[in-house]
Simulated assay, not measured.
Amino acid sequence: MRKIIADTHAHTIVSGHAYSTIREMASAARRRGIQVQALTEHAPKMPGTCGLYYFQNLDVIPREMDGVRMLFGAELNIMDPEGNVDLPERVCEELDLAIASMHIPCFGEGRSEDEVMRAYEAVMKKPYVKIIGHPDDSRFPTDYERLVKMAKETGTLLELNNSSLRPASFRVGTRENLLTMLDLCRQYDVAVTTGSDAHVDVDAGNFCYVSELLEYCNFPEDLVVTTDPEQLKRYLQIDL
């Protein structure tokens, strides 16, 4: 497997439950050899995070720090089975990238598989959503074949989330779910991305668990867009 050179999901102190600044995250990414570091703060409905104006003002931040190409976006909260998210479309379209994820404080718990899948399918049809974040948690029951097929149809990247695979992760059944998802991605020729989901600088660009998983299942490296800047540019539709 070629080296992972991009991290498409991480947070800074403004997300409320993260602990490092933008420059600390950039510096840590450089030390790990990461060429592209995305900072994707939790969107406004996550308790404790930043508000709308933060996302409207991201154009003032330099896109290169410490020799690292920086991307600034949002981790949108999927709010309901209709796939509504918590930033306006016009704001999302101006971000470098938008991830859409399910979190219990926003989507709730005890949802049925059909509700989860309706939400995923609706949000993947939004052209500004480039990535589905951590689709690996059994608390949100998922039909992975249906998810992978929709990702292929819409050109949406499915995320391998390093934080989900931590032994102390609060997410449920993540390794087994990701192995199922990766097998289907191989079958249907669907690309994945890698997100550290770092909430502190020491984890920026940390893919120790993701790399082990990819090696374990011998996943095709050409389907991992974060090993190839040209593929990443194509999927995110952004210059790097």
Rank of each mutant, 00 (worst) to 15 (best):
A29K: 10
R118K: 14
P47Y: 08
Y144A: 03
P88L: 07
M102W: 07
M124V: 08
F55Y: 14
T194R: 06
M102E: 04
R23H: 13
S211N: 13
S169K: 09
D96C: 01
E89H: 10
I4V: 15
M150G: 00
G108I: 13
H17D: 15
V129L: 14
I4M: 02
E82V: 03
L165I: 03
Q237F: 02
A38R: 06
T193M: 14
V172I: 12
V148R: 00
E121F: 00
L97V: 10
R111K: 15
L182C: 06
N84F: 03
G16E: 00
V85A: 03
E94K: 15
E230G: 02
E113P: 10
P167K: 11
R90H: 08
R23M: 12
F170Q: 12
L76H: 02
G155Y: 04
D114T: 12
R32W: 10
I132T: 03
T40H: 01
G33F: 11
L165G: 06
V60C: 10
Y19G: 06
L179E: 14
A26K: 07
G173T: 10
K149I: 01
S211C: 01
R30K: 15
A29G: 10
F140T: 03
D7C: 05
Y54N: 00
T226S: 13
L76F: 03
M102I: 13
L52M: 15
K152V: 04
D239C: 12
D201V: 11
I61S: 05
E41A: 02
R118S: 15
I131T: 01
Q37G: 08
L179W: 05
V68K: 09
E41I: 05
T142Y: 00
G205H: 08
D86T: 08
S163Q: 04
G205M: 08
D7F: 10
L157Q: 06
M25R: 10
A100D: 01
D222Q: 13
I22F: 15
